[in-house]
Design a protein around this nucleic acid. Sequence first.
DNA 1: CATGCTTCTGTGAGCGTTCACAGTAGAGAA
DNA 2: TTCTCTACTGTGAACGCTCACAGAAGCATG
Lengths: 347, 347
Amino acid sequence: MSRSSTSRSAEGRRRPPTIHDVAREAGVSRGTVSRVLNGGHYVSPAAQDAVNAAIRKTGYVVNRHARSLITGKSDSVAFLLTEPQERFFEDPNFNVLLRGCTQALADRDIPLLLMIAGTADERRRNLRYIEAGHVDGVLLVSSHSGDPVVTQLRRAGVPLVACGKPLGQTSKVSYVAADDRDGAREMVRYLYASGRRRIATVTGPADTPGGVERLAGYRETLAECGLPADEALIVPGDYSRASGEAAAGLLLERAPDVDAVFVASDLMAQGVLDTLARAGRRVPEDVAVGGFDDSPAAVSSRPPLTTIRQPWDRISAEMVRVLLARIGGEEAAAVILPTELVRRESA
Amino acid sequence: MSRSSTSRSAEGRRRPPTIHDVAREAGVSRGTVSRVLNGGHYVSPAAQDAVNAAIRKTGYVVNRHARSLITGKSDSVAFLLTEPQERFFEDPNFNVLLRGCTQALADRDIPLLLMIAGTADERRRNLRYIEAGHVDGVLLVSSHSGDPVVTQLRRAGVPLVACGKPLGQTSKVSYVAADDRDGAREMVRYLYASGRRRIATVTGPADTPGGVERLAGYRETLAECGLPADEALIVPGDYSRASGEAAAGLLLERAPDVDAVFVASDLMAQGVLDTLARAGRRVPEDVAVGGFDDSPAAVSSRPPLTTIRQPWDRISAEMVRVLLARIGGEEAAAVILPTELVRRESA
DNA sequence: CATGCTTCTGTGAGCGTTCACAGTAGAGAA
DNA sequence: TTCTCTACTGTGAACGCTCACAGAAGCATG
């Protein structure tokens, strides 16, 4: 029972106080301290105060490992990114999402483990870690369909919330997404309302929900406005700036009379602007350009982009909320959040 | 001793196998399994094989909480960001750094906890968590001096590695940084060599190592080249694009004959380019512009930026290496990594 | 006065590891 | 033979917490 100083690091960290120390200090038992720590039910006010005072005095902080050992929960969640790394770098949305989630979790005192699974090997390793129960749940960012991670996590019974609707999932999995389709409709309607009649689109990848939904919204709105469906006006992209440049080139070739482009991401829209500028088309006079995301790129491009704002702050907050509910035993849920048209100079 | 199925989540996760199950399966004791898990010293080859087979068969994964409880180590590290949030969004370097660290840690099977401490309240909370010993060490990203976090962590004896030299630290703290001063010298020398004689600079904040060192390199090189030190040519910035725009405006006013600008970050350089374009100055014909960082912004700006590449991949790898060494008991260390001039069109 | 109920408190057990220690077997030396 | 040394193995005791349970009050009800 030696109480001798047990230094642990090179710098000499002291042994932190345990629940025992607090109990002794407060003149109560471990059980009572534990009850105070976990909500204070069935604890007398006097004991409450004594324990709280003792906690302050001793500087006690609960040992999460010991707690987790017995509860079987880790009180932490993973933020799992299964994108090829370029996208992580290029796409500013990830930053916003990541920060939002970190924040929302921090408010509940839950640490976030960042996991990046670009390669198959990394995926295996991270899955192994997650399936071992080292995290209570997973915030998944992986827009591509056919991602084996979703099915694997579901099979393992790990609570999961995806960002964006996971395509090709038979059974229900929780997700939070912006209303891509409606956002696209709003933008195309806006372009139409401002007098444009040859409205093209640069789409996202066909295996991402954003790619699919935004294109669908585009098509619906054209029909709604009585504009002919012209496949020459639909050019595929992959969300990268370079693909936007290329798509615009193709578009000018196939449909030189184009007077508006709805681009499925701001980054691609930047590329489109570059190409249009090189081709001598003025924006928005000759061609109006609408983006999607309202990322920092939208403000910094010349001219600044009229775009559809995705409510990333709300998305991250909702992802965390839904995940925690799911961990708490609630059923899977889908949350669709409204988007908003932001008018700048490009359209 | 009931072995009944203990479902833990809504989905019904089964109780994972323990070291006991492995031991039974392999026909050895817990101790032997534990030894295999921890390097396999003093274990017969036969036992080794039996245990490994049993691990594969049972799908055993060590319970880190139980291990941590007894070892007193968490086998995880924190990535602590103490910047105001805008910078996190704007600065693409953070992304690269974050990914690099995650990767380097993943290779050693160590999870990374992401912590963001913009406000004083967040700082307090995160420090509390860290000081409780929930992580073995901290990767600190906080360039501003006078950051109380550094001192506090040092006092608590938490192993720590900073990104960039922490200013105003009396005693030694580990850090990894690019050779800012030398990078600045190389750029200014390059501008001089290409015939420029009125070389201005837009600096970073004076309370960041990058701000201080890059300015010092600039001054030294001017002196070296025999150019007069003209304070009108030195304009302060804060690394943001907007501050670059403003700085360039001020500069054109104070020194209209400027023929080159060394800008302490690519982001600010973008702002400088904007202002120069609006003022009708051609780049690089009238004014050469040199950036710093070689961030994605350098490629996407018009014209693409000649800049100084910071070896972020190596920086993150070194940060992790140094931190783990420090956790292992080694002394504090400073690592300075060389930069590299990247020639593009702006200079 | 016994009985039940509610509120509060303390205690032992056990979560899954590692660690220190005690032991065993076999090889080589005295 | 006996002793020592090395290589290996098993066992109890922690680590710091929560949980289930047992019990002690206090108060109303029969």
